[in-house]
Design a protein around this nucleic acid. Structure first.
Lengths: 187, 187
DNA sequence: CATAACATACCAGTTGGACGGTTTCGTCAA
DNA sequence: TTGACGAAACCGTCCAACTGGTATGTTATG
């Protein structure tokens, strides 16, 4: 709001908005709907302006994915800071970040949807692969037990299920599931 | 083989081949690469021929997805027939089907890749949702424990990881993981 | 011969993106 | 303080290639 009424150009804001529009399109209408025309149209920015910020469509998608990974990192680190026990801390942080998807405001869900959409683009899988490898090396000391691996895989499964709206379970069942998962990280 | 050298038209074979080509394109180059031109071109069938078998692109994608679910069902049922213990049997079957992805011949991996690609198309998520609901109702008696849910979620996670090539672990670690998961289905 | 299984030609709309323009901005000398 | 000036942030247009789909064939099959 404080940034709204003096009319300086705000390239970072425009850039951010373009990414959000692209994310919304991807999650609502699928990958095939993410076109330069659609993004520029829905964001009010001209196609020329869009291509100024992102020199090509691929660049746009990569920037979107990077933005997503940053959010994931932030969510994990936040959860880890509130966790006093070192053993399994990363796994609990990862679980927490995956669970957070459910409880967050409506618009945020798009970001997870688009994550999966982007993972289907072969060019972007490499980035994800690297992300996973870096983390698994960093936390090899505290999070390399079999049960921790299971919890992380299950977290992926929950992430997937929340995304697709499948596995619908009531809240108490979900809570028991989470409790059990956290218990597994502590073994 | 017996059907190969006398030149009868084989509509079912052509249809099958079109689906396989579409799957390969989706997994190798992403969803945006699955166009009618690309499918017809790569399969040697004319576009008219393609549109004869699948009246629209949507019909093609839906047929592809249905074909995928049939394979999944078949894999689960096969695993369940070889399993004498009723308790947790479906969950073990599901786990087995997800694991099978890894061990199967190269071409088959595409079918899983494309499953995820198709799941990103909002129109097809409904079908997946129904599939899950039907199964969870059918096996409510034997597979509704918390640990069974965790195993199924972890199976989804493994499926995802195998797909993306992430979570690379050595064989012995993987085997310990699987053993532990099966153990959890029996509790 | 009727119908299914294809092929060929064509179309209107859309695609990514190249291109040349105009406006805004930071900065630094006068 | 000004104003000049190069760079950054945007806009609007054009285009060749491609998109999903139709319409009309031709050929095989039962």
């Amino acid at each position: 709001m404080s940034t709204a009424h003096h009319r300086k150009k705000q390239p970072l804001f425009v850039r951010q908005q373009l990414l959000e529009v692209a994310a919304r399109l991807a999650s609502e209408k699928g990958m095939t709907a993410v076109t330069l025309d659609a993004v520029s149209g829905a964001s009010g920015v001209s196609k020329g302006g869009l291509l100024h910020h992102f020199p090509s469509k691929n660049m746009l998608l990569e920037a979107l994915f990077d933005s997503l990974l940053e959010r994931l990192d932030a969510a994990i680190e936040e959860a880890m800071r509130a966790d006093p026990l070192p053993h399994g801390r990363f796994t609990r942080g990862y679980l927490h970040a995956c669970l957070a998807l459910r409880d967050q405001p409506e618009g945020t869900k798009d970001w997870a949807q688009v994550t999966m959409v982007l993972l289907t683009e072969p060019q972007l899988r490499q980035r994800w692969h690297e992300w996973v490898r870096e983390r698994s090396e960093e936390y090899v000391g505290t999070d390399s037990s079999v049960d921790a691996a299971i919890v992380r895989l299950a977290a992926d499964g929950i992430w997937l299920a929340d995304l697709l709206g499948s596995h619908d379970m009531d809240e108490s069942a979900r809570q028991r599931l989470i409790d059990r998962l956290i218990e597994l990280t502590q073994l």
